[in-house]
Amino acid sequence: MKDFTKELNFKTSRSSGAGGQNVNKVETSVTVTWKVDDSEFFNERQKSLIREKLKNRINLEGFLFLSVSESRTQFQNKKIAIEKILDLVDKSLFIPKFRAKTKPTRSSVEKRIQQKKQNSDKKENRRFKF
């Protein structure tokens, strides 16, 4: 996991929702922005992967946005936001291993059919015969 926290910009605002006086006067909500294209920590291939996988979170100017207002303190929200954005980018860089589709072998198909036949015969023998 690359630590690109030096490239992150933070903006605070008042949280929405219930909370009374604390919500009304303290700016605890934190919005993190990160310009993907200007990053010095990632190469072009990694940047294109990030842009592709996080395209719903990146705006037209190329900024990745993330807002956090989970905690009552600005410091906690900033820590949570950093963790979340690092995790998001780390997951977007993951490339799943290629898995080639395979056909079942002839013997496994025959074995399955044989098993079905045995089961069918077993149930047929349970039936009441006149």
Rank of each mutant, 00 (worst) to 15 (best):
I82L: 13
R51L: 15
E70H: 13
F75S: 00
T31P: 03
K101A: 12
S29H: 05
Q118Y: 10
S69E: 14
D87K: 07
K55A: 07
S39F: 00
L88G: 03
D37M: 10
D38P: 05
E110H: 12
N24L: 04
I80H: 08
D3L: 00
T33R: 06
I113R: 07
K84Q: 11
P104G: 04
L49Q: 03
V32S: 01
F75T: 09
R99K: 15
T5L: 05
R126H: 05
F98T: 14
V109D: 05
E83N: 12
R14Q: 11
F4V: 03
R99G: 05
R72P: 02
V26H: 07
V36A: 10
G19H: 08
R14D: 06
I82P: 08
Q115I: 11
N22K: 14
E61I: 14
V68E: 05
T73P: 14
V30A: 10
D90M: 04
K122I: 13
K101S: 13
M1Y: 00
V23R: 05
I95L: 12
K116N: 11
K103A: 08
N56V: 13
A81E: 04
D38S: 14
K2N: 08
K78P: 09
K116Q: 13
N9I: 09
I50R: 02
D121A: 08
E7M: 12
I50V: 14
N9K: 08
I80D: 11
S39R: 00
T5Y: 10
N77K: 04
F128N: 11
Q21D: 07
T12D: 01
K111Q: 10
F130E: 06
D3W: 09
F63S: 03
K84A: 09
I95V: 15
S48Q: 15
R51Q: 15
N119K: 11
L60N: 14
S92M: 13
S29M: 15
F130S: 10
S120M: 07
I82M: 11
L93T: 02
N56I: 09
K116P: 08
L88V: 02
L49C: 10
K78D: 13
L93S: 03
N77R: 03
D3G: 08
K55M: 06
W34G: 04
A81C: 07
R72A: 13
A18M: 03
E70L: 10
S69I: 09
K91F: 03
R106S: 02
F128V: 04
S16K: 14
D37Y: 02
G20R: 04
Q46M: 06
N119V: 05
F4T: 03
Q74C: 07
T31Y: 00
F10W: 09
T31L: 04
K129W: 14
V30W: 00
E110I: 08
G20Q: 09
K129H: 13
N125C: 09
L54N: 11
K78V: 08
T31S: 11
F63H: 05
